[in-house]
Design a protein around this nucleic acid. Sequence first.
DNA 1: TAGTTTTTGCAACGATCGTTGTACTTCGGC
DNA 2: GCCGAAGTACAACGATCGTTGCAAAAACTA
Lengths: 201, 201
Amino acid sequence: MRTDKQRALLDGALRVFARDGYSRASIDVLAAEAGVSSRTIYNHYGDKAGLFRAVILDSSDRVAERQIAVADKLLGRIANLEADLVEFGLQWAKRDPETEPHWALVRQIQADFDHIAPETVAAWKERGPTRVRQALAGHLRRLAAEGHFELEDPSLAAVHLVQLTAGSAAAAEPGEDWETVIRSGVGVFLRAYAPGATSRS
Amino acid sequence: MRTDKQRALLDGALRVFARDGYSRASIDVLAAEAGVSSRTIYNHYGDKAGLFRAVILDSSDRVAERQIAVADKLLGRIANLEADLVEFGLQWAKRDPETEPHWALVRQIQADFDHIAPETVAAWKERGPTRVRQALAGHLRRLAAEGHFELEDPSLAAVHLVQLTAGSAAAAEPGEDWETVIRSGVGVFLRAYAPGATSRS
DNA sequence: TAGTTTTTGCAACGATCGTTGTACTTCGGC
DNA sequence: GCCGAAGTACAACGATCGTTGCAAAAACTA
């Protein structure tokens, strides 16, 4: 019972914070979304900021694990390098209804930076972006050792891969086709990091 | 006199909206920041949303012009391709105290998407990101015609260049050196788009 | 200087919000 | 069925906020 309420509260609060932002999200709405008394929030998390912190950490953990699972699945064994990278890019850029509130919450964090406890921001970065980046870097390092790539800094290459695929898709105009964008980004990545490319330019 | 007040109001409101976000920014603070009566805001812009809209459009115009000027200066005539691109990336990623509030405001827009009039969002995109992207694409198209690059889609290449430089710098860890990140990103761009690269991979 | 426009100061409104205290109810474990 | 813990309902608080009306003051124009 306690676990159910906790989950419903964290999930509901994620939706509300993601949609309305921290200051617009009222305690009453947060409580109602989870079917919980507003008093229960204070009993559990002390205040609004405490709930926000708990939501960030919970959601970051869950989404990071999900992303790492996608990376493990698509980059763990390479059949066709280009096709696998395109599939990775598509999965990475995909707007999943399950994880979309998380990314909206991330945008709220990036916007409200100065009004969030630095310790909360640091914990989010560590559990989320940094952890995922390291996982991607590990895959690229291994793939390089296997001869698929030629790269000096796997961590930086991980950033490049994400920026060229999901990052570019996010920056796309409304009319642009995501698959075209991602195929193009993967092409750039391959031309830059394919064996033999580094020695040229 | 009227112009002075208008400018002070737009500049001050930009700072406050950028720092606190739309809902946290109170009319009284907005008025005080510009040294203006709160009543004057209503006389000029009707309501808070009207002021927000005016601030977005004004700031977008100013920053877009500034960015396009940077692009014209650094990409207009190429002396050393790699060095010029690195300088472009550094300028693009640079956090200028003059334009920093604008980018904070952009983050607010991206986070508050659902609570801003769609017409306002559309006007911002058109005057800001889209306009700048087209300017960059124009430069890349010309540089390709001059033989510096080999690219099919200049607009997409513009996104790649920005994502590999400023985008990657923004995603960097606190300890990372921006110049290293940007040099690396420019290297990727050059290896992918240098003449003869497209036919390989 | 006279008249018009713009700006300001002030009070007030209804509404919303975070938070707390308290008494009551619900529920899991024994 | 009993007990302690967890959850709820309710009222209340001080505070803040967007917005408006109005009269006085200031700035600008002719």
